[in-house]
Write a protein that binds this DNA or RNA. Sequence first.
DNA 1: GCGCAGGTATTGA
DNA 2: TCAATACCTGCG
Length: 355
Amino acid sequence: MVKIWQGTIELNLKLFKFHSLNFKNTNFKKFKSDLTMKNILFDLKLTQESGQTSQPPWQEIANCVNGYCDVMTLDNTPILLKVYQKSINELNIDYELPISNKSLEINKKLIEKEITRIYDLNFDLNKLYNHMAEDSKLSPAIDFCKGLRLFLAKDPFECIISSISSANNSIARWTKSITKIRQKWGEDVKFSSGTFYTFPSPSVLMNIYEDNFEEYEACNRTIETEYCINNLKSCGVGYRAPYMMKTSELFEFEMDLFEIPKMSYEEAFDLILNLPGVGPKVADCILLYGFGFKEAFPSDVWIKRIISHLYFNGEDISVPKVREFGMEKFGDYAGYVQLYLFHYARKSGLMKKLK
DNA sequence: GCGCAGGTATTGA
DNA sequence: TCAATACCTGCG
């Protein structure tokens, strides 16, 4: 049994904040991070904006070039983490404490450890480039993607629910859904910079109304159905709603998120394939972007088009075959190769050509 | 208003 | 094991 996150039910629908944040007059604490000094090859902007499937993008900071922030729970305390980069090889980290908890002391090593995990900063990109350079199909991708790293989800449970909602869906649409879920059922944390919402825990998510009808019945039919907005389907997840609720229930009662990192890739894959709404593509996204299993080669229609164009003369290859091919050919680099190929295809115009 | 894109679950060979 | 189809929403 697992109960990791605290969550309170927030029933008021808040307006979306799509604009960038403005950080004038705020209480950010700067600290000299060891990461700043390490001279790590890392392009923060490229990584943040590469559209990796794991969680909604972090918020851009208006008055800060290449600055991003999001709330995350460290040591059971939500803090607002801000990362920015003035030049490649140099990463700056600031953080802000909740208004209600400003005297708190935060362990800076913990923040650095988390940032290192999220951006995979211990991974040697030059080793990857040497490997890619040996394959004439992959070598053009290197220059398009210098400094691109894996971008892991800060919250594995949110990653799982996000990935389920990403199936047969567009990035813009599932991102909106997850943002609504955070705002309706997550914990709202107030910072000087504004209010941020954490993602609800499995125990909260398994108990919400699934659709208008359930909510209407629970209100003893005292409201009009068009005012039923505190249910999962009102977030635009469609037929994925029951999958998400059932998965929440499984993590509350039967499965343990902390067991997954201890497993082999194959064990973990077989396990999460049993979750409702999770097929091979979603399972691989969860393992790669939620848990950092780099052997995963998430294969969707786009990767299928790219692989069949590059390696099979445009011949139609089934998605399961593409996955098999990628895992076999790229081994421990499969996840990174998938990420680099996808980004390369987007930037080089190959994607448009393949459509 | 209507066709289309996008993975999974289900059904039926 | 594989092919066909329904599922839901938002965009063009």
